[in-house]
């Protein structure tokens, strides 16, 4: 019966826009269909306000216990996407399906129920914890808001979660300033997981951490995924970390997906010139490797005034006349989806 009701929603994803490696719709824990968001930005007292398309049509399906990495530079719209996925912001267009329910158009009560299933870990562990709240309080707060557990039960759940992320019970009464960056990120992870969400959205979770601590936190995320079966949406610009963590990779440029597919396809045979440039620009910790480096010219174009045609065309080494007029669709080429006229 559910099939009949929600069949219309399912049909919005045409079969050729599903990336290889993605699960069938019925098996995905989250499905995004053409998610888009734009903002009105005032440009001074007398100027007309401008519209910025922060995210312009992103689709994906997330399999349970898997990791989808969203890769892009600043201004690519990856944080806006993360905010829509966690229902902090209502999508401007498109739909976001959780359990066959489109939360993009859901009422407040439904949203409230589903927010517990998608939790978020923020980039900066120094800014995302309240300095006047003890660690225990911070971890228990989601339970206080979303469940009717007693104080003792909340405390037990918090201590259990703290043990899972490698915090000791005596840390329960301490304040965030008493912890290092790596430990704070553990606190943030514990707080996000205490409601036992199905999906965790991680916005650059390790970019503020040092190498040795970063390895500890990445290991913790791998272990938690295995023991709790949570799916990750991993937003990052660090391709070394993405290659280590991801099952599927979605590369964004100026609010659009330019390449989307299984990790090995993206890293071993990147097809979009932007993905190639990104990969070749990432420094490799091996002085013996002499690679050809594609250095892109220029910077990300202003989102107020995106170029006509393909958004990457002003910086693209393979640019053709068609790229300046017509937007390439995200279509299957080889083992992944690519939005490029020149890609084979």
């Amino acid at each position: 019966m559910t099939q009949a009701i929600h069949g219309t929603a399912r049909e919005r994803t045409a079969p050729d826009t599903v990336a290889p490696g993605e699960p069938p719709a019925a098996h995905s824990v989250m499905e995004a269909v053409n998610l888009a968001q734009s903002y009105e930005v005032a440009r001074g007292m007398f100027a007309k306000s401008a519209t910025v398309k922060a995210v312009a049509g992103i689709s994906f399906r997330l399999a349970p216990r898997s990791t989808l990495a969203i890769v892009g530079e600043s201004g690519s719209g990856k944080s806006t996407l993360a905010r829509m996925l966690t229902m902090i912001e209502r999508p401007g267009d498109g739909s976001l399906l959780l359990d066959d329910v489109d939360v993009a158009e859901a009422d407040t009560a439904t949203l409230r129920r589903y927010r517990g299933e998608v939790q978020m870990v923020f980039q900066n562990p120094y800014g995302s914890l309240n300095p006047r709240q003890t660690v225990g309080k911070a971890i228990e707060e989601p339970l206080l808001v979303n469940t009717s557990l007693s104080a003792a039960e909340r405390r037990a759940r918090a201590l259990d979660m703290m043990a899972r992320v490698g915090l000791r019970p005596e840390h329960h009464g301490r304040y965030p300033h008493m912890f290092s960056g790596g430990q704070r990120q553990r606190i943030a992870i514990a707080r996000a997981l205490v409601l036992r969400p199905k999906i965790l959205v991680l916005d650059e979770p390790v970019s503020a951490l040092d190498v040795s601590v970063r390895a500890q936190v990445l290991n913790l995320l791998v272990e938690l995924q295995e023991s709790l079966g949570v799916a990750y949406v991993f937003v990052s610009h660090d391709l070394g970390v993405v290659r280590h963590m991801a099952d599927e990779v979605l590369v964004m440029y100026l609010g659009r997906g330019v390449e989307h597919g299984p990790r090995d396809a993206i890293f071993d045979a990147p097809k979009h010139p932007y993905t190639r440039a990104l990969l070749s620009a990432t420094p490799v910790a091996d002085p013996e490797s002499r690679r050809e480096r594609i250095v892109l010219e220029g910077e990300l174009p202003s989102p107020f005034n995106p170029p006509a045609g393909c958004p990457f065309n002003p910086r693209c080494p393979l640019v053709m006349d068609r790229c300046r007029v017509e937007m390439p669709p995200l279509e299957r080429k080889g083992g992944q989806l690519v939005a490029c006229w020149a890609a084979q």
Partner: peptide, 22 residues
């Protein structure tokens, strides 16, 4: 040696050889 081993791009398995403590 430990710092180099902890880099994800040099890692072999799913679990990185991390340096304990701070």
């Amino acid at each position: 040696a430990a710092l180099l081993a902890a880099l994800p791009e040099r890692a072999k398995g799913r679990i990185l050889p991390s340096i304990p403590g701070v």
